[in-house]
Design a protein around this nucleic acid. Sequence first.
DNA 1: AATGAATGAGAGTTCATTCAT
DNA 2: TATGAATGAACTCTCATTCAT
Lengths: 215, 215, 215, 215
Amino acid sequence: MPSRRAAAPSPNDPEQGAARAAILEAARAEFAAKGLAGARVNEIAARAGVNKQLIYYYYGSKEDLYRTALEVVYSEIRSLERDLHLGDMAPAEAMAALIGFSFDYLARHPDFIGLLNHENAHGAVHVRDSRAIRETNSPLIELIARTLKRGIAARLFRKGIDPVELYVSVAGMSYFFFSNRLTLSSIFGRDLTEGRAVESYRRHVVEFAMAGLRP
Amino acid sequence: MPSRRAAAPSPNDPEQGAARAAILEAARAEFAAKGLAGARVNEIAARAGVNKQLIYYYYGSKEDLYRTALEVVYSEIRSLERDLHLGDMAPAEAMAALIGFSFDYLARHPDFIGLLNHENAHGAVHVRDSRAIRETNSPLIELIARTLKRGIAARLFRKGIDPVELYVSVAGMSYFFFSNRLTLSSIFGRDLTEGRAVESYRRHVVEFAMAGLRP
Amino acid sequence: MPSRRAAAPSPNDPEQGAARAAILEAARAEFAAKGLAGARVNEIAARAGVNKQLIYYYYGSKEDLYRTALEVVYSEIRSLERDLHLGDMAPAEAMAALIGFSFDYLARHPDFIGLLNHENAHGAVHVRDSRAIRETNSPLIELIARTLKRGIAARLFRKGIDPVELYVSVAGMSYFFFSNRLTLSSIFGRDLTEGRAVESYRRHVVEFAMAGLRP
Amino acid sequence: MPSRRAAAPSPNDPEQGAARAAILEAARAEFAAKGLAGARVNEIAARAGVNKQLIYYYYGSKEDLYRTALEVVYSEIRSLERDLHLGDMAPAEAMAALIGFSFDYLARHPDFIGLLNHENAHGAVHVRDSRAIRETNSPLIELIARTLKRGIAARLFRKGIDPVELYVSVAGMSYFFFSNRLTLSSIFGRDLTEGRAVESYRRHVVEFAMAGLRP
DNA sequence: AATGAATGAGAGTTCATTCAT
DNA sequence: TATGAATGAACTCTCATTCAT
């Protein structure tokens, strides 16, 4: 049972771990769509094109697979956040990039929203229990704090804004749009899933948030 | 004379038995916490203190009960929205009240977030299929549009802001805070569920949004 | 879920609890033959002529059903032990009756051996955890002690024999015969399952044990 | 020259690899504890510290491994029985030694009881089908018969005792004690597993059986 | 001699739902 | 209006075994 093994694929065999990776990929999609309880191991196996029991061979249980999927998703977004290099930009430019990044990541990774919603609905116990997730501290808050400070020094931003609260409100504008656009579309009778609506909302978010920062 | 009605009594009939109401109340909580698939009919019966079969007698099926719970929740929030009377206030005051209302409603009705998240995760099919929900058109967008217009006329707000987009971004700031505060607390190592954090964030949302509206 | 209900069958309906009783009866046989792990819930349902899920409805789990079966078997043997009325007989007669009872009970209740063997093989945890079994203290040891005393006073039995040890050795002679007669038959090339062999061994046990008691 | 033998090396070959022996040892313990059905191949492999597949390589199947374990255990006890040399002792001494041997063997080889119980519970089919076990005829009955005869001639023992029945009753006293001491301890509220209880019962068995033989 | 990957069959259990009263 | 009994479908997970190297 290789379940706790880190990875160690032999360099000669590119096929190594293909099934393992396929399972993880399928799990991500299935868990994002239906949550831990709603997801079907059968369905994950079918999507991954592997025998159902292989999932147990590699991951031990549905819940362990779920936790792994969650960890991978978090580690990916962390990695992207680290690549932003906002320090090289002017404060306003940096802040706009940050806001845009929040939006674009969600636009491209619908899985993330599904996984997070289910985590929160169930007490966030897996996030809380995963050392991997807790320890990979988000660099984002530091980035925001530094950028805010630079903007304040340049008299571009107001004082007194808490970086965590700013992050939450900015992320929330984007998150809610993607997370709830189906009910919103239904209720407002306006399709928020089509490309132009998304682009337009992106502009709104950046403008609105940047305006909210002005002194 | 509705007295001869064999089955399907209207869910809002105040004459209806306590059992019926207890079931609905229990269903709301259970569905909000676990979604349609995750909720257990047994659990709803237990919470309501009734026999499981009674749920089928009154509501026909788990899914119909879910739809009813969803309709009731929407109808409640609509009713509250109608009671806001923003037309009587000055534009800035009215807008601040609106933003605060968004926040406060979610703070007091955690069920709403649970139900909406599950609806969206599953294609919002019940919202789409419910005439009751679609037809009770939200008065909110009209309210926002009118308030925006009044504020622009008074040179308090910028031009060019779309009311739907404004609603989404403002609602999103609050929604995301409540919906995701468990994972956020874990990740930022900062308890966002305690009273002061909530109050502080409420101030931030109102300030930030109002600032974003300035010309 | 009636699982913890005592019984309370309505006096008018003799069919009441028929399924429940049938399940228990089938379980006894199945568990005795194959143990807790080896027994098949499907098989119990088939033997009882009921739907498999009814077993869960009534007994909650395979293990709870097992424990119940064990308790019923113990309570039956206790009840028989209580009916022995050895106090009315002369010491030698009483002791011989006791030895014979040990033998005859096992001869007629092969389930008992199967259940006990599996219990012992798995640490006797269910016996240990069952208040019902522990509390229904066996009257046997008391009976043996009193009979021994009476026999010693009448100079029929030796002194210094511990009643528990006497019980174990007497019960063991019978138990081992029934429990192991298949391997014994194979090894000694002598069929210990046929009637005459059983009768002959019964005589041997009573004689041998009574002789062992003589002063 | 067995060197070219492709598979199926004889299980008793001292030249055989340590892995092979380790598997057998682990199997013995596992089968004794859980029976054929309850034993886990995975667990045997883990206990033996070998890859699971190696078990199949060496023994073909779980059941074949079980049969082999059974044969080894029987062959060991036979070998010990042959080493008793009762013919050299006086009849009473010899008989007491025999009874003590029954007891001591079980005290030291708890596996034996587990294996035998499971065999008997499942029809003793493996004992019946194993030529190795059937053919290695037990020398014990012969020993008992000869010792009995010598004792009768010396007027130490009663006439009319069947050697097989004597063996069964004497073995049964010890077997039942070890086999059922967990439930017995629970029921009598007296720990029969601790050293003094074992010693005391050993004395009882020898005394009681010897007394039972007196004319 | 030894191993990691993979699989099919089947187990216990859950659950929404229906039956019968 | 209310309930206990009963059921079929499905789900997670286990396990002996085989494949391929």
